[in-house]
Design a protein around this nucleic acid. Structure first.
Lengths: 228, 228
DNA sequence: CAGTATCCGATGCGATACTG
DNA sequence: CAGTATCGCATCGGATACTG
C-alpha cells in the first residue's frame, strides 16, 4: 500500500514524492541530467535497479518521459511540465535543509566524486578565461584513487570532469581537505577566509588565482541565510 | 539506514520529510491542530503508535515541540520555527498535487469524517450569521453511522463538529452524495453549478441558503488553476 | 484523552552480479 | 552505455488490543 486514501492534494503529491531517493532523482533531472549514468553520478549510493524502478514510477506518474532521440541509441530522461513544476518544492526543500539541518558535515556525507560532479555542473565557464583552462583539484586526505580530479574548462562553455590526468598542462591546482572544500561548496565557509587561513591552497598564475573563486560557483543553496 | 549520505541540503531535508505520513502530520500541525487526537482525526488511517513515533522523530529533528501547558494535563504539539518554515514546502506540494494528480476521486479517498473535519476547520464563522447556526450535513449514500454530521457555528467564531444530534434546532440541511460534496470541497465542482443541477440540496431559510456558500469555505487548494 | 505494547507480514531496498 | 536479474534481510508500518 503506497497510497494514503485522502483527497487532500498534499497527500496525493506525497504519494509520489516521499519514496526513498525520489526527491534526489528529481533534483538531478531539474539540474539538467538526462542520461541514466549521469543520473547515477548524482545519486551514487542508489543502486541502478532502484534508479530504474524510480524512473519507471516517475514516468507512470507523468513526471518524466523517456525517449531515445533519433540518430542516437542512448535514452534520455526529461521532466514533463508536471515534473518541471516540482522545482519549487525541491528548491524549498533545499532552502529548508540549508537553514535547519545541522551544519556539521559528517564523514559519511563527504564524497569527492559527488562534490566534483556538482562543481562541474555549477562552474560558470563564461566567467573563466578564454581558451582552455585546466584545473586540478587535489584532496590530500583522501585515498589515492580519490585524490585528484581534473576540470577541463573550455572557453566556449564546455566543462569536462576527468578522474585521470587528461594530459593537458595544468593551469591551476586547488588543494584542500575534502571537508574544507565541501564546506566552501555548501556555504559553511567563505572562500576568501579559508584561503587566508591557508586551508585551501591555489597554485598557478596570480591572475587565475584571483579570478578562480568568481567562476568556481557554489551550491545553489550556499547563499541561503541561516537563522541566528 | 534512513540517511542519504549526501551533503546536498535537498537530501538532508528529504531525510525528514519523506517518511511515510510525515508530510500529512506536518500539514495538520500547520493547520493548527495541537492535540494528539486532533492530529489523529486529520490522518485517520494512521495508527496511533505510528503517529506517536512520527511526533517523536519530528521532535528530535527540531520541528515539533511537545509540552504540557500549565494548568492542563493535555500535551500540545506545536511547530518550532523550523517546523513553521516547512509551510512553503507543504503548500507547494498541495498546489502541485491539485494541478497534476488525476482529478477523479476514488472511492477509497472519500471519507466523510475527514471531509467534515476539514470543513469545520476552514469554515469562516465570521461570515456566518450572528448567534448560533446549526447546519446538518447529510450524505444519503453513506452507511447510517456516517450519514449525518452537525456543525454548530457560534457567532463569535467557534465551530463545533458533532457526530450525533446535539439537540439544537437545525437551521440548515445540506444534502449531497459524499463524492459530490467532496468534489465541491476540493474544487472539482463549483457550488452554484452543482446546486443548480440539484446534486446538492439546501433546506432552510432562503437567506441562509444564499449566504451559506460564502462562509462554507473550501479546501485551501480549491482555487488552484489546473492545466488545460 | 493520550498514548503503549505487541505481533507479524509485506516489501522496500541494498548488494551484487550479469547482459546486450 | 544502460540497464536487468536475483536474493534475502531488515524494517516499516498495519492491525489490534490495552493502559493510566
Amino acid at each position: 500500500m503506497d497510497t494514503y486514501g485522502q483527497f487532500c492534494p498534499v497527500a496525493l503529491a506525497a504519494e509520489v514524492l516521499t519514496r526513498r531517493w525520489t526527491p534526489l532523482v528529481i533534483r538531478e533531472l531539474l539540474c539538467g541530467s538526462t542520461r541514466f549514468n549521469d543520473l547515477r553520478r548524482g545519486v551514487p549510493r542508489m543502486s541502478p535497479s532502484l534508479l530504474s524502478t524510480r524512473l519507471d514510477e516517475l514516468e507512470v506518474a507523468g513526471i518524466v518521459t523517456r525517449r531515445v532521440p533519433e540518430g542516437s541509441d542512448h535514452p534520455e530522461y526529461r521532466l514533463t511540465r508536471a515534473g518541471e513544476e516540482l522545482r519549487p518544492i525541491v528548491e524549498a526543500m533545499g532552502v529548508w535543509g540549508r537553514r535547519w539541518t545541522s551544519g556539521d558535515l559528517t564523514d559519511d556525507e563527504l564524497d569527492p566524486d559527488l562534490l566534483m560532479w556538482d562543481v562541474r555542473r555549477r562552474l560558470d565557464a563564461s566567467k573563466a578565461p578564454r581558451g582552455r583552462t585546466v584545473v586540478r583539484f587535489h584532496f590530500p586526505d583522501q585515498p589515492e584513487a580519490r585524490q585528484s580530479y581534473w576540470l577541463v574548462v573550455e572557453g566556449h562553455g564546455e566543462v569536462d570532469l576527468c578522474w585521470h590526468d587528461p594530459g593537458h598542462p595544468v593551469d591551476l591546482v586547488v588543494e584542500a581537505e575534502l571537508a574544507t572544500m565541501t564546506g566552501i561548496w555548501v556555504g559553511d565557509y567563505r572562500f576568501d577566509e579559508v584561503l587566508e587561513r591557508r586551508e585551501v591552497k591555489l597554485r598557478g598564475p596570480s591572475e587565475l588565482r584571483r579570478s578562480f573563486p568568481r567562476w568556481l560557483g557554489l551550491s545553489l543553496f550556499a547563499a541561503v541565510a541561516r537563522p541566528a
